Amino acid sequence: MPKIQLGDQEVDIDVGPDGAELTVGESKVKVDAQGSLIGADVFGTQMEKVEGGMLITRPNGTKFLMGDDGGYTLMTPPKAVGISDISKVASYTIDTDGNGLGSIHRITFGDGGYANISFTGAGEFAGLSGHHLKQTFTEENELFIGQFVEKTETIQ
């Protein structure tokens, strides 16, 4: 198996007609013959190319789909949902369907970003959508949402 030196790490490369697999220590990355990512196992997080996107599985078993269209779908419902910094919330509204079948919590942040969190009538998590939104999962599968912080570079 060919090897290359990348910094102080040695990278094993296994090339075949369908693509390549690169291995550094315990981490592996797989690409197809065109160089597109088709899978990885990095720091215990696994990524697998599936129809419509990339299925991500975290070490604690939490799964989500990063769609080819830029969408984000939770495949494993979080145990709890929280707001990382309540001082950044500009408004919070709750809309119910009137039949007790569910509710949508809309949180708007000061920067204009928002989150729509859907719950069933039984109070179970049903979905999350939003824009300009920071999402953080804990190891215990708790979801914290917050205002997206844009990083700007300073030139010196």
Score class of each variant (00 low, 15 high):
M1T: 07
K3F: 12
K3D: 02
K3Y: 13
Q5R: 15
L6W: 09
G7F: 09
G7I: 08
D8G: 12
D8W: 04
Q9T: 12
Q9Y: 09
Q9L: 11
E10S: 10
E10M: 14
V11E: 02
D12A: 15
I13H: 03
P17T: 13
P17A: 14
G19A: 05
G19H: 04
G19F: 03
L22T: 03
T23K: 14
G25Q: 09
E26S: 11
E26Y: 08
S27H: 07
K28W: 02
K28H: 06
K30E: 09
K30W: 11
Q34A: 15
S36R: 15
I38N: 01
A40D: 04
A40Y: 05
A40R: 05
D41V: 09
D41R: 08
V42E: 03
F43S: 10
G44N: 03
G44I: 05
Q46E: 11
E48P: 00
E48T: 08
K49M: 02
V50C: 02
E51I: 02
G52L: 07
G52F: 04
L55C: 00
I56L: 03
P59H: 04
N60M: 07
N60I: 11
N60Q: 10
G61P: 00
G61D: 03
G61F: 03
T62P: 01
K63I: 06
F64P: 01
L65C: 02
G67D: 01
G67S: 10
D68C: 08
D68E: 03
D69G: 07
D69P: 07
G70S: 07
G70W: 08
T73G: 02
L74C: 05
P77F: 06
K79A: 13
K79V: 11
G82C: 04
I83T: 09
I83F: 04
S84Y: 04
D85V: 09
D85S: 11
I86P: 09
S87K: 12
K88S: 11
K88A: 13
A90G: 01
S91D: 03
S91N: 10
D95H: 05
T96N: 11
D97F: 11
N99Y: 14
N99S: 12
G100M: 09
L101C: 03
G102N: 08
S103R: 14
I104M: 06
H105G: 01
R106T: 15
I107H: 01
I107Y: 01
G110W: 01
D111A: 14
I117T: 03
S118A: 15
S118G: 12
F119K: 06
G121I: 10
G123T: 11
G127P: 06
L128V: 12
L128P: 05
S129N: 10
G130E: 00
H131F: 12
L133S: 09
L133I: 02
F137S: 03
F137A: 01
T138D: 04
T138V: 11
E139L: 14
E139G: 14
E140S: 15
E142N: 15
L143M: 05
L143N: 04
I145L: 15
I145C: 04
G146Q: 08
V149T: 14
V149K: 15
V149S: 09
E150R: 15
E153S: 12
T154K: 14
T154G: 13
Q156M: 13
